[in-house]
C-alpha cells in the first residue's frame, strides 16, 4: 500500500514538473515580445524544476537511502537566482531599447493618453515600405 502510494506521489510530481517545464518553454517560444517572453522561463520553468527536484528527493528517500535533503539546495538556489537574472535581463532589455511598440519604445515611455491596444512585435511584422 505504501509502495503504491509513493509511486503515485513520485509519478504525479514528475508529471507536474514536466508540464510546467513544457509550459515555460512554450511561453519562451510562442509569446509576442521579449517582456512577455520573460515570464515563461522565470516562473513556470522554475516551478517545474522545483517539482522535479521534489520528485527525485521523494524517490531517493523511498528507495531506502534515507532522507537526503541536499537536493533542496538546488531548489533554494534556483528560487533565489531566477528573479535576480530576470531583473538583470529586463534591465538589459530596457537599456538596449528592446521595444514593444512599432517605433521600438520601451514600456515606460507609454503614456496613458495612447490607446490601450497592444502593439505588435516590430520584428514579426514586415515593414510598411
Amino acid at each position: 500500500m505504501i509502495e503504491l502510494l509513493s509511486e503515485v506521489l513520485v509519478s504525479a510530481l514528475i508529471l507536474v514538473g514536466a508540464f510546467f517545464t513544457l509550459v515555460g518553454s512554450l511561453g519562451l517560444t510562442r509569446l509576442r515580445d521579449f517582456f512577455a517572453r520573460l515570464h515563461g522561463p522565470t516562473k513556470a520553468t522554475t516551478l517545474g524544476v522545483g517539482s522535479l527536484l521534489l520528485a527525485s528527493l521523494v524517490f531517493i528517500a523511498l528507495e531506502g537511502d534515507g532522507l537526503r535533503l541536499h537536493k533542496v539546495l538546488i531548489a533554494i538556489f534556483l528560487f533565489l537566482t531566477a528573479p535576480v537574472s530576470a531583473h538583470l535581463l529586463a534591465k538589459a532589455a530596457i537599456c538596449l531599447k528592446v521595444g514593444t511598440g512599432p517605433a521600438g519604445e520601451v514600456p515606460e515611455t507609454f503614456d496613458a493618453t495612447q490607446s490601450l491596444e497592444i502593439p505588435r512585435d516590430p520584428v514579426s511584422t514586415p515593414p510598411a515600405t
Partner: peptide, 13 residues
Amino acid sequence: ILALDTLSINAIA
C-alpha cells in the same frame, strides 16, 4: 541570453 538560461534550467530538470 534568456534562451541560454532556460536551456541550463532544462538541463537541471
